[in-house]
Design a protein around this nucleic acid. Structure first.
Lengths: 333, 333
DNA sequence: TTACGTTACTGACACGAGCAAGTTACACGT
DNA sequence: ACGTGTAACTTGCTCGTGTCAGTAACGTAA
């Protein structure tokens, strides 16, 4: 029965109800170390707090401590797919377990100088898919942000937690094709420049696998998401003797399939194709698309522990990332 | 050259630099009404603020005013597609233009009682795709949230800003098919119960269009995202005399196409199919998928003005929503 | 007894910004 | 000269918390 005119319940209300001072309430509710509280008082405070439905004001807390319990994730300006969506969802769940609130800020950073953004939220940590400049990182640190992570980016950035999974994706694609006996491999690179930060590490992984498997460097071609535009690339590969291609993702893989149809080639006989993500359309394609999935829950869990460790000042545990990506074997490769 | 040890720049710093009191700084920077400030002072304050790189602490501001300039959007627990992604991006841009910060909270509400969430952020407005209970709405109102919007939901909810666009989508699908001469229409309903809030208004729109076009009620069948599972539904439609189906979205539409392939039917000759969303895979399908797109930028703009109006206490302008959805004509219908 | 330590608290300040109420200084009318 | 009005400020309180520095009560040892 919350009355509309009711003011916010503050810790002073709890204190009055429990017959103690506000400080005591704070100590009890935060389990402040080196503060001795008698069992009786503790339970009285807790009882009062729950019965009043007390929840501390995040604004006041943030003002006092200089940081909030919000973890801010800056999303890239290109449309995110369902995979990134589930990754964020899992990450949110994982962080919530530790009392952190995860929020994402969509839209290009150009909208609003990102400076304003983290000043407006005062987050405990900031994650972003792209890089930060050293100046930006310093500014955030100074403003009380405990952790700044660029998930992907230039090779000189300190932390790039998503880099390894992305490379493994590309590696696994190539390994699958090489194991199937292919020796001349192509790489279908996306048309959209904005996804370069994802595409580069994947391609890198494919290159690594080719080198390790004693196979020539992959032949990289840009494949637009259009049958007519994809056809020339497919034809060029075929003329080159390429028998299998790793595609940046399932959309690009489907563009390759569409291009093949235009040129009169059949998968996997003339050209094997393997995608990434396992979007719903992949299993419905003709032929059904072989692809690589990532265990987003596992990645999220790893990311969450990294964030938590950094916020609490503990050393960051080295991630266990094996088995995080897997091939979904269908017809196209 | 921001030194790492530098503390946050406060309005007191600006005041000192400009040689005025803190209050004056506040008045200048907020254009407080009924406060007269001389031009000289005003420019000195502004100069000091910009040269120091001052940005007000959101925490302090939120504490004082009782609300922040954050607009919180609760995302549903099912994976969001690229369309919702761009909608959020546009909304973010649109709101940023008015000084509001848009953030999204992914993950199921079950993670964390939503009460904690808005207490932790103290947003100016809360948007959600699903409904709120009246108790939740009251609690938020009491806590200073200016606006609570359930974008979709039960018919007795006050505001459902996304309802109309969704209905128009379904209506436009059917209108397109009826205009092409079809008289027996099916509706391919999604397998996933979680998207029901989107599916219901779309189906509703299709029903409306059928009634208006003098055509029988659409034959609704659930179509899973799997060729084998979709085949029986397709066969049943064909036996029924259905010549065209509206699909919930492009994924479902592609499942229908896949099911048709299993059963040996061809689109659009034996059965016309129309999807929703125009995902990249739609144009790459065989046959290329006819579909309906929504102008997410326009929807975002409408949503943004609604939010702004409500926050500023102005009456909400009735939305101009015609021409927001359009058919992308390809081969399948 | 005094000195000292521990337990279990309380009082008061600080965080940074907004805003009501008070204070000058100056112009204007009578 | 004196009130009145207004432009152009400043002083000081407030929002709700976390936390440092007390302090009273109660031992306990010398």
């Amino acid at each position: 029965m919350t009355d509309s005119t009711t003011r916010r319940v503050t810790s002073a209300d709890v204190a009055k109800r429990a017959g103690v001072s506000r400080a005591t309430v704070s100590y009890v509710l935060n389990d402040t170390p080196h503060q001795t509280i008698s069992a009786g008082t503790r339970s009285r405070v807790i009882e009062a707090a729950t019965s009043l439905g007390y929840a501390p004001s995040a604004a006041a807390r943030a003002l006092r401590t200089g940081r909030s319990d919000v973890v801010l994730c800056l999303l890239p300006d290109w449309p995110i797919g369902p995979e990134v969506g589930t990754l964020l969802g899992n990450l949110s769940t994982e962080l919530a377990r530790s009392g952190l609130t995860f929020v994402a800020h969509p839209g290009s950073q150009a909208d609003r100088p990102i400076a304003d953004l983290w000043k407006a939220i005062t987050p405990a940590a900031v994650l972003a898919f792209t890089d930060f400049t050293p100046a930006e990182i310093n500014a955030m640190r100074a403003a009380g942000v405990a952790l700044v992570v660029g998930l992907l980016g230039r090779s000189d950035s300190p932390r790039r937690e998503l880099e390894v999974p992305q490379q493994r994706v590309g590696r696994l694609q190539a390994e699958h094709l090489i194991a199937a006996g292919h020796t001349v491999i192509g790489y279908a690179y996306p048309d959209d420049d904005r996804v370069r930060i994802f595409a580069e590490p994947r391609l890198e992984g494919t290159r690594t696998a080719c080198a390790a498997g004693g196979v020539a460097e992959p032949s990289v071609r840009i494949v637009p998401l259009d049958a007519d535009a994809a056809a020339p690339a497919v034809k060029a590969w075929h003329d080159e003797g390429v028998t299998a291609v790793c595609a940046y993702n399932d959309d690009v893989a489907m563009a390759v399939l569409a291009g093949m149809r235009r040129v009169g080639l059949r998968a996997p006989a003339d050209l094997a194709v393997i995608g990434v993500d396992d979007i719903p359309a992949a299993r419905l394609a003709v032929p059904a698309l072989t692809t690589v999935t990532t265990d987003q829950a596992a990645v999220a869990a790893h990311l969450a522990t990294t964030v938590l460790a950094a916020i609490n000042g503990r050393p960051v545990a080295p991630g266990e990332l094996s088995g995080i990506v897997q091939v979904v074997r269908r017809e196209s490769a």
